[in-house]
Design a protein around this nucleic acid. Sequence first.
DNA 1: TGTAATTTTGCAATGGCTGCAACGTCTAGG
DNA 2: CCTAGACGTTGCAGCCATTGCAAAATTACA
Lengths: 205, 205
Amino acid sequence: MSGTMGLRERKKARTRQALVDAAIALFASKGYDETTIADVTAAAEVSPRTFFVHFASKEDVLFDDPPLKLELFTAVLAHPGPDETPAQLLLRAFHSVLHADTDPMGQSERIRANLILQTPALQAGAVRKVLEGQREIVRALLDAFPGTLDPVAASALVGAMVGTLVGAITMLYSDAEVAARMAADPQRVRAELETAITSTWQHLG
Amino acid sequence: MSGTMGLRERKKARTRQALVDAAIALFASKGYDETTIADVTAAAEVSPRTFFVHFASKEDVLFDDPPLKLELFTAVLAHPGPDETPAQLLLRAFHSVLHADTDPMGQSERIRANLILQTPALQAGAVRKVLEGQREIVRALLDAFPGTLDPVAASALVGAMVGTLVGAITMLYSDAEVAARMAADPQRVRAELETAITSTWQHLG
DNA sequence: TGTAATTTTGCAATGGCTGCAACGTCTAGG
DNA sequence: CCTAGACGTTGCAGCCATTGCAAAATTACA
């Protein structure tokens, strides 16, 4: 047995990956809307019907892998400090994720990010993902302060943080030129987000 | 001539309204996904093709009228106080809208709100609307502090406020039972949102 | 009344998405 | 090694949203 998976599963995974690769390549070259499922499956050399065995929708192929950042985030939330307030804990988790040396976005990930930012149809999906992540963070936060944190307050707090980031990011990437600069300079993005959160929150108190 | 519009425009408006009414009625009784465009046009007694003359998409029929609240909001932003900070101005605008006696949601509006909250396909559209509104608020805020407010900071600030509200609202309406109570008691909703904003922002400083 | 403008409609086609049943390929048990 | 059942892939038929195009119906106006 080579690896954990049997031949069958490996084959299935290969098909799935072929679909993802073909999709990203085609989306990048022809554009999302201009690429049909048939195009993707042809490039991946599988039947059109097979696409929907692996993905629930066309956009799903772009939101394939689970967000690693989120795991890290909730992991930090799982261990609150003795005298830490919910807001402080969230802030600490944010910093952890921001400075974690997660792989700095490969080629395909950058393509994906660009596609999402450029394609309205995909932004909806991205937002859905964000809202899901938000719910998960709220859950983790409530677990960190069992019984002593109002759910609505927790959700509002998390919403404030996510909203701050989304606001900053959308403005940062609203200009194509600036967006290009950002893509080339991850450090800069970190600094901008850092500033956005800390200075914004400071102004609120 | 009866009214400002000619017969032609009145007739067109009537057709449009018939589509909106039919759509809301059918969506409410059968559900959004279970209702086809053909159903709606049949109920409105027009050709299916006509639907797309009036609305760009199926969901568009639910996002028909422009958001009055937003106008009020930006109107307040247009007149900042002498020593008011951006955050204070936003907070004041929020309170204005919250306590403005806009008609307290008619029957059809409540149905629409429920549909959106219950139908994932529609939530995407709602979020799009929210983000558009957010951009507009940012624009108004920047106009209120010309030259002295960083665009990214402004967008982050507005994002924080909107995010707080969205967070609070999603949690408030996540439970169907609570949601029903809220729908019946607008005062309660105001109070909850009031608390969410003020207490959340207080915890951040 | 006749002509131009505008709205409504029919028709045909594209493309995302789904249920179903068949077909082949793996896996596990004997 | 062989076989029954599990699983991945495929073809097919079909629903539905959406769109382009051009004809038909309706309204406006000279």
